[in-house]
């Protein structure tokens, strides 16, 4: 069975594993113990101790905490109940003028702001840009991902999560 050390997974996740090695991992059979090694790598990365249950973006994690299962930024900021859309508790900057769109697209043709705007969702604590939406004005904010967390741990990983109130 294929398997890699935690150090290799760490370098892979950080994008620092040399390409030939990365390529071999991409071409090989997948390692079945990846998930928990991945969680361990991510847990080492954060300064807080609440156990990470599932990453949902590059620096956003569902974790167990005193306030229940929440979505947490790598910096520690909580976006609340993981079943709710974390974006609704973020800071937003909307680029819907030619001037503000040019800041990101200085040398290209840009969208017509009356047809499309660029929405940036930041962590209110560390200002990390967690997600960008390109949407028509008035388009509802998307709830990107609603994982079946309990089902995943119970049926796919065979390690049911503790019940929470």
């Amino acid at each position: 069975m294929t398997g890699y050390s935690k150090e290799v997974i760490n370098d892979l996740v950080n994008g620092t594993l040399p390409w030939p090695q990365t390529r071999r991992i991409m071409s090989a059979y997948k390692d079945d113990d990846r998930f928990f090694k991945y969680l361990a790598v991510l847990q080492d990365r954060v300064s807080w101790s609440d156990p990470i249950l599932l990453p949902v973006s590059d620096h956003l994690f569902i974790c167990d905490s005193a306030e229940g299962r929440i979505t947490r930024c790598e910096c520690g900021h909580s976006f609340g109940d993981y079943r709710k859309n974390w974006k609704l508790k973020a800071l937003i900057n909307v680029r819907n003028t030619e001037e503000s769109l040019r800041e990101i697209y200085p040398n290209s043709d840009i969208p017509d702001p009356s047809w499309m705007e660029i929405r940036e969702f930041f962590c209110p604590n560390c200002a990390h840009l967690h997600e960008v939406e390109a949407a028509a004005p008035g388009y509802p904010i998307v709830h990107d991902f609603e994982p079946d967390l309990e089902g995943f741990y119970r049926d796919w990983l065979g390690k049911p999560l503790k019940e929470v109130a």
């Binding site: 043709d109 047809w115 499309m116 660029i118 990390h128 840009l129 997600e131 960008v132 939406e133 390109a134």
Partner: peptide, 20 residues
């Protein structure tokens, strides 16, 4: 035209795809 027809991910921006 007038809109980008692609997206970024996890904080990445869409590519500028409404060139004239």
């Amino acid at each position: 035209s007038r809109v980008f027809d692609n997206g970024g991910m996890c904080g990445g921006y869409p590519a500028p795809t409404c060139e004239k």
